[in-house]
Amino acid sequence: MWREIKPDETRTVTIDGGHKIVTYSFGSGDDVLFLVNGGPGLPCDYLREAHSCFVDQGFRVVAFDQLDCGASDRPNDPSLWTLTRHVWETEQVRQKLGLGKVHFLGHSWGGWQAVEYALTYPENLASLILSSTVADMPQLRAELDRLKAALGPEAVAMMQRHEAQGTFSHPEYVGAITVLNYRHVCRLQEAPASVMRSLSNWNMAPYTTVQGPNEFTYIGNIRHWSRLADLHRVEVPVLITVGQHDEQTPACALEMKLRLKHAELAVFPNSSHLPFYEDPALYYPVLQGFLERNRRTPR
């Protein structure tokens, strides 16, 4: 169960090109759970606090603030805000920390990185956890349109008008997004403190460039990305986790499972995009069981 644990080590590494990345390490086990969080532009507080408890199972848990967020450097260079460059950055962090093969857990945007990482650096993986994520943006965009449609035709027409005009800050549009966020991002009445810390320090510039103005409108440089056709190349065991009400929907999760050779899929009925906070009694046993079955070093 998640709880606040102070990092055993907070270390700054300098990646090629001179930028500094701040990393957080918990425990000292030989098996490394390597966390790459959502965003982009979001500090890693919410994901590292939710998973640092795996030190109790003998894992070393490692997270980092991606470039342009949290405590890491903020060069504010839009040319760096691409999926490919962020995957390279993630590999730089793994190398600089000397982590060896890792159990790579990518959540949301971190899951898109996880898919690309598995196809680019397969030799560095012990297992892969795709948490509330997708491998095909066209499918996700269609699913998001379906979620929007549940607001009713008048609301959809209003949202389409504002999206066409670029008036994303209009109160009626913001109101619709607020409802969707509650239904499909976090259904808790009060978000955990770690989530609020991440959200309060969100750098929206890379987020807008890569994704778009909000969680339900993909007009950034990622909008056409798809790796479904390549998932058969992933050889390591894969766990896919998704909330029943997740914005990155169970339909998207199923499509990944059908393309992967060695995949398990867990759907959590009481959660949306943050099952480790919304449905912890079901989430943690699933992840713990998968990690135990795929440890590199027996306990």
Score class of each variant (00 low, 15 high):
Leu151Ile: 04
His170Glu: 13
Met159Tyr: 04
His170Arg: 06
Arg146Asp: 15
Leu180Ser: 01
Gln160Leu: 14
Pro171Cys: 01
Met159Asp: 00
Tyr173Ala: 00
Tyr173Gly: 00
Leu180Gly: 00
Ser169Asp: 10
Glu163Trp: 06
Thr167Pro: 06
His162Lys: 01
Ala150Gln: 11
Arg183Pro: 03
Pro153Ser: 09
Gly166Leu: 01
Glu154Lys: 07
Ala164Met: 06
Pro171Glu: 02
Gly152Val: 11
His162Ile: 10
Val174Tyr: 07
Ala149Lys: 06
Gly166Thr: 02
Glu172Cys: 01
Asn181Val: 09
Gly166Cys: 04
Gly175Gln: 11
Arg161Met: 07
Arg161His: 14
Ala150Cys: 10
Asp145Cys: 10
Met158Ala: 11
Ala164Tyr: 07
Val174Ala: 08
Gly166His: 07
Val179Arg: 05
Ala149His: 03
Phe168Ile: 13
Val156Trp: 12
Leu147Arg: 05
His184Ala: 00
Ala149Val: 10
Lys148Asn: 06
Val185Trp: 09
Met159Lys: 02
Glu154Pro: 04
Gly175His: 09
Leu180Cys: 06
Tyr173Lys: 02
Gly175Tyr: 05
His184Asp: 07
Gly152Pro: 11
Ala157Tyr: 07
Met158His: 08
Val174Ser: 03
Glu154Ile: 14
Lys148Val: 15
Tyr182Asn: 13
His170Cys: 05
Glu163Thr: 02
Met159Leu: 07
Glu172His: 04
His162Ser: 02
